[in-house]
Each structure stands twice: as C-alpha cells, then as structure tokens.
C-alpha cells in the first residue's frame, strides 16, 4: 500500500505547484501582466495612467527574452475606462512558451512621471509542465491514440494484478531510460553530429537498464524480483520505451520537460493497462461468439476505448 500512498502524495504536490503558481511581474507600479488570447498582453496598473502617452505604440519595446534584438511589432494599445488596464495587441501570434520582456519607455500617472518600466511576462512554467504530463497521459495516450506498445499491452492486460505489476515496472524503466537517453543525446551525440545513432543508443540504454535492474533487484529484494522480474524483459519489446526518447528529441524538450513527459507516458500506459484489464476480467464471464473469443474481442474493446479517448483530442490545458 506504500506505493499508492507515495503516488497520491506526488499527485498532490503537482497539483499544489500548479495551483499556487504566481504570475511573475516587475516594477512596483505594474501590478500584474499576462498573456491574453494568442496575440495580446494585458497589463494591470496600480493606479490610473495617462491615456495619451500610454496609447502611443512607439512608447513600447517588446521582445522575447531569448532574442532581445528583435522587437515585436505592436498593432495597437488600448486603455480601459478607469485607466488601470492596458491591452497590447501584436501583429503576429506570440510564442507564449518563452518569456517576453516589455519595456514601457514613459509612464505618467496623475501628473507624476514614473519613468521607464520594464517587466517580464511569462506563462506559468508549472502549468506548461502539467499540460505536458496530462498530454502524454490522456490527450495523446500512447496506447489508445498513438497505437504503440500493443503487443505487451494485450499480453499483460488479462489480470488486474499483472496489469499493475507491468505498469509500475514500465513507468520506472521508462523514466530512467528517457533521462539517460536525453543526457546522452544532448551532450554526446549532438555535439559530435552523430544523431543517426539515436536508435542504437536509445535501445542500448533501455536494454542496459533492464539488465541492471534485473541483476540488482535479484540480489536486493528477491520478493520484489519474483513479482516484477518477468515483466522486465517485456519492457524491452515495447514500442513506447523507444518512442518516448525519440519524441523527446523531436519536440526538443529540456531535462525537466523530458522527465515529465516520460512520467506521463509511463502513467498513461499504466492507466490504459488498468482500464483494459478491468474490462477483460469482466469479459471472461460474457457470452462471446466462439470465433471472437480471446484476442479478437480484446481488440474490439480496445477500439472502443480508442474511440472514447478520441474525445480528449484537441483538449488543451493552460
């Protein structure tokens, strides 16, 4: 039962970080600034500001924090009635994943010149991470919407106990191997222009981890080995274990994002296994036509699950 407890604590911590994140803002007069829709930034002031100066678009210099030399073009600036809220509209969509720096050259409030104000607008990073996690778990669930890892999926989803064992083993190996793969890819393969080796290296790392866990677990905790040992080799024959490092490379995630993504993939697989095994335990009691018995009906069930999971498509959080 300890495992479930630690899992629950982890989920709680993730939720807490997400909920308690605060918008970063600078400048004492600027209370809050955040992105609005796709091409707007909204700024809240502590008091009413001078409309004429603030609505002049030459008064602003906005850039992505990664390239300060490229100013972003502003289409218009509009102040609200009470003079406390300003909306900047840009000519192009903003890349909201990177922080933006806004410089207001002159700010006048009630006849008092406040001088230059500069602050950073960023989307909450915890929210972004959370959306990666949920994305990998539900929206792009590897089993039901990406159709990967099916052989092992159908092999181990007959019983709930098997499904849980496989899910836990898989998640652990997944996270470890994705992190090592990420490190080797970014610090060894990329500098040496050896990207074409990625498949060999990634699968090599997975088999290495499987072997290492096999050896160590056998000695340290024979009881755990008896429970999870048989799934270790199955991990190796699972497409997801290779697909995750490859997708991390394609999406260009950094270390934290890679960790969250692999964790999401592992948990998503766990979830899929658990759902499927619950249904299949019930299916055994059902009256199925003889030629559909066994895997055939399992596939059709998985198809129905797939249809259900299509409902998540297009969902975006934060």
């Amino acid at each position: 039962m300890v495992r479930y407890k630690s899992l629950a604590i982890f989920v709680l911590i993730t939720l807490f970080i997400t909920v308690s994140n605060v918008w970063a803002s600078a400048g004492s007069f600027i209370k809050k600034a955040s992105f609005l829709k796709k091409d707007k930034i909204i700024i809240f002031f502590a008091g009413p500001v001078d409309k004429k100066i603030v609505e002049d678009i030459d008064n602003y210099y906005v850039y992505e924090s990664t390239d300060p030399d490229i100013p972003l073009k502003i289409k218009g600036a509009s102040l609200s009635e009470d003079g406390k809220t300003l909306i900047l509209t840009f000519t192009e969509e903003l890349n909201q994943h990177s922080p933006h720096v806004v410089v207001i050259k002159k700010l006048v409030s009630a006849g008092r010149n406040l001088g230059v104000a500069s602050f950073t607008v960023r989307k909450s990073y915890a929210g972004f991470l959370f959306s990666i996690l949920i994305g990998a778990m539900l929206v792009h669930n590897f089993v039901f919407t990406k159709y990967l890892g099916l052989c092992v999926f159908f092999g181990t989803s007959k019983r709930k106990a098997t499904a849980i064992g496989m899910g836990i083993t898989f998640t652990i190996v997944m996270v470890c191997s994705a992190m090592i793969s990420w490190f080797l890819y970014n610090y060894v393969l990329k500098p040496l222009n050896l990207q074409f080796f990625q498949v060999v290296i990634f699968i090599g790392i997975v088999s290495l981890i499987v072997q290492a866990v096999d050896i160590i677990l056998r000695k340290i905790n024979p009881f755990l080995f008896k429970a999870f040992g048989i799934y270790l080799m199955l991990v190796l024959a699972n497409c997801v274990i290779l697909a995750v490092p490859l997708l991390i490379v394609v999406n260009g995630y950094n270390a934290i994002e890679a960790f969250v993504f692999s964790l999401g993939a592992g948990l998503g697989y766990f979830l899929a296994l658990f759902l499927m095994s619950s249904v299949r335990e019930k299916l055994e009691l059902a009256n199925v036509p003889p030629s559909y018995q066994g895997l055939s009906i399992a596939f059709i069930t998985a198809g129905l699950f797939g249809l259900a999971f299509m409902g998540f498509s297009g969902m975006s959080i934060f």
Binding site: L148, C151, V152, V199, I203, L236, A237, N238, C239, I241, L242, A243, L246
Partner: peptide, 8 residues
C-alpha cells in the same frame, strides 16, 4: 520505421 527495433 525506427520503432521496428521493438517489434517483438
């Protein structure tokens, strides 16, 4: 194509 590696 790359995932052929893991085809059991």
């Amino acid at each position: 194509i790359r995932l052929i590696v893991t085809f059991s």
